[in-house]
Design a protein around this nucleic acid. Structure first.
Lengths: 203, 203
DNA sequence: ACTGCAACCTACTCATGCGTAACTTACGGT
DNA sequence: ACCGTAAGTTACGCATGAGTAGGTTGCAGT
């Protein structure tokens, strides 16, 4: 029975445990008591480290957000536009597969009025960042940049919603799912190939 | 000051008020007290009509779900596949615009373990219904029917996420947004027209 | 061995909010 | 005018859960 962990380790453990509990119950229904119990400590220990429920939640959200964004940014560093769309989808779905708890937390409505916007969605922030990338590309290609947020939100919504569904059914592989999403986003239903590949052209 | 409404009217009023409160606060944070207060009535009245918080919630969700589905089904009754995709988007966005509270309620995670699935999302149920429609069409067109749920969830996720964003910014018009979504879903980013119309071809 | 502090615990306070028991009042039919 | 019932009220019980005050204990360094 390990007792009396050093502060940094306990902190890391509490973040893990907290993420699991927030993922399972959502912010409101998660109780500090359950988090403390699962970590085999008493409540004041959690309060000592994070100040309160919102403090712990904020730390968890911040870390997860950073992590997904990094994964996606790395994935889209190179490649053709079509490849980058599919790689971004794959990167996000990889996150969903590897960190289902983190994804669940980000999927839920945030209680914190983080951005000045009235919208309390974490993934909305992600979509806005994608929107900025799109806006630049749209402008270069001679498209109306004002439409960029629509497409950005559409893409993010697509991937996140499919991700949520995938956590439930867990098949087919995320690689296959990403190919389908890539095909839909790039070629549309009209030119959908029978079996999507990165190189496939309209059937 | 109107007092002592007949049961059916009070019931209707409570459903309206409840929907607004659930939309604003979410199921957990909504309090029966606030609902009662807003309806200028005391708590037991609400309990008399709906049994409890979950009862009221269930009724509201059921009605909203019926309503959106009907709007969509009516919209896709006729037309080419491409038109039907866009009309479905427009129908959903019309619902979002006309019934923002209802949409907000359906967007949130449901506390009720309605379907036997572990997934507690109302909109997921909607996506599954779309998936059934897709599966049939896929089979007829010689596509792998197992991929149908992916596309169904992708489309529903796309529209709902954009809808959520739209409630926040409220521009451009839903007609224009629906044209963009229709273009993306049907032709993909590759063949996106500068200014989408229902009849436009690749630019 | 002994001491100081970091790590941890017990045992509360306080607020919120669901649900209910027991009572009161408006009003339509005779 | 009266009265039965539908409609509504006040005032509570009880559970849950955030946050805290104040005390205890293991361990690292001398």
């Amino acid at each position: 029975m390990s007792r009396r962990l050093p502060a940094s380790e306990r902190r890391a453990q509490l973040i893990d445990v907290g993420r699991a509990v927030f993922a399972k119950r959502g912010f409101e229904n998660a109780s500090m008591e359950e988090i403390a119990d699962r970590a085999k400590v008493s409540k004041p220990v959690v309060y000592e480290h994070f100040g309160g429920k919102e403090g712990l939640y904020a730390v968890i959200v911040d870390r997860e957000m950073d992590y997904v964004v990094r994964r996606i940014v790395e994935a889209i560093a190179t490649g053709t536009p079509r490849e980058r769309v599919e790689k971004a989808s794959l990167a996000f779905l990889g996150y969903v597969r590897d960190q289902p708890d983190g994804f669940a937390v980000l999927s839920q409505d945030s209680p914190l009025t983080s951005s000045r916007g009235r919208l309390s969605s974490l993934l909305n922030d992600l979509a806005e960042r994608v929107g900025d990338v799109f806006a630049a590309n749209f402008k270069d290609a001679g498209y109306d940049a004002r439409a960029a947020p629509i497409y950005a939100h559409a893409l993010v919504g697509m991937v996140t919603f499919v991700g949520k569904w995938w956590t439930d059914v867990r098949k087919p592989s995320i690689e296959e799912v990403a190919r389908h999403i890539g095909a839909l986003a790039w070629m549309g239903l009209r030119h959908l190939p029978r079996k999507p590949t990165l190189k496939s052209r309209p059937a």
